[in-house]
Design a protein around this nucleic acid. Structure first.
Lengths: 201, 201
DNA sequence: TTGATTTCTTGATGTAGATCAAGTCGTGTT
DNA sequence: AACACGACTTGATCTACATCAAGAAATCAA
């Protein structure tokens, strides 16, 4: 009985993954069946580390439920580089791709439920299935486009402008992520973030 | 006679392209023959614009000879985002991939000699040849890894540290690109750049 | 529930780097 | 050769945001 419930939930998780993959490349039923067999469920508890600096990222993750943060530690201070929520892909992707040690930590902000595929298996899928090779290309393209946008924004806007843009463009994030992390993400101190909050309110 | 010289030069250019493509994915002779037929030579004169803000980037370029700079214009001020030299690929790649209007300009810093392939033809090649789809994925991965590195560096280092890193890691660039553009690339004013030059010297 | 941490707020002060300004050097043009 | 215009330098001043500090609020753990 409990097993049945668990299995229904698992179906839902795999369906969410399929939906996201198909945003980048469409798969036949057989292709999906093959591809999905390489993904395995995993979970992280709040505050647990998914990846730590110095490691080579071995997994490419799909977040079914939960919130994670990506940050680098530079002489004691944390530089938050991004967050992932439900239905995002996650992991330290640059290290995963280059198979070189990462400078980043990924930590669960809440309990998380995910699927993951190993580097070896994903590379195998790239070789075997053109639709997956395409998924890889398109997904890389998407990440790249987002990074280029963010990079320009971080250069063009003042602290106040960045705060306001966050407010209008991703208001949900304020509920999910502690302010100090958001401040760091926007490239300012928690004090500045707090003052802007008071000012704009 | 002149035609022969031109044709020998053109062979050299295509060979350089082949060499770079094969860094990402290996091609058989026939695959290369097909792929290379979609690339056409083109040139830009010093100061000429390859791409302007508002346009959708239609071309993916390979720089055989010359230097180009990529910059965005934010209320009158230029934000330099990158440079390309010999044997680099070039173009406003995020706009090329997304086929949405770019916010960037690309300007020739010197006379340039390039090859280029249109969006339509590259997409066609992605469909036709798995080795090219792979090239696309791997190239995207490389760009992405570089961007992630640069993003972290721009956050972690002071103006002086960034200047010193430029000095040790890409000293050649100082000869090729005017200081004011390098200053902007590092996220500081020309005055600050000049003062650091004096200080470090 | 209560005490202990951690996060957030608010004020006072400090500073890296920007801005403004004026001169010098270099380079291309006629 | 001369001159015009942009690139670079150097100094004086300014400012957005950081840092330091101390209290208030929220969250956590038993």
């Amino acid at each position: 009985m409990l097993k049945q419930i668990a299995s229904i939930l698992e179906d839902k998780i795999y369906n969410s993954l399929k939906e996201q993959v198909e945003k980048y490349s469409s798969l036949t039923a057989e292709e999906w069946s093959s591809f999905s067999s390489y993904w395995e469920p995993c979970t992280f508890r709040k505050n647990q580390y998914m990846t730590k600096a110095g490691q080579v990222e071995n997994w490419f993750y799909f977040v079914y439920d939960g919130v994670l943060r990506l940050y680098a530690a530079k002489d004691g201070e944390e530089i938050n580089a991004g967050f992932t929520y439900n239905n995002d892909f996650s992991g330290e992707y640059a290290s995963f791709l280059s198979q070189e040690p990462t400078e980043f930590y990924i930590q669960a902000i809440t309990d998380c439920s995910l699927l993951r595929i190993s580097y070896k298996n994903l590379m195998y899928m790239f070789d075997e299935l053109k639709c997956i090779e395409r998924f890889g290309r398109q997904f890389n393209a998407k990440i790249l486009i987002d990074m280029a946008k963010r990079q320009l924004e971080s250069r063009s806007f003042t602290a106040e402008e960045k705060y306001k843009r966050l407010l209008t463009q991703s208001p949900h994030i304020l509920q999910l992520v502690p302010q100090k992390h958001l401040a760091s993400y926007l490239g300012m101190t928690p004090e500045t973030f707090s003052r802007l909050r008071a000012k704009v309110r």
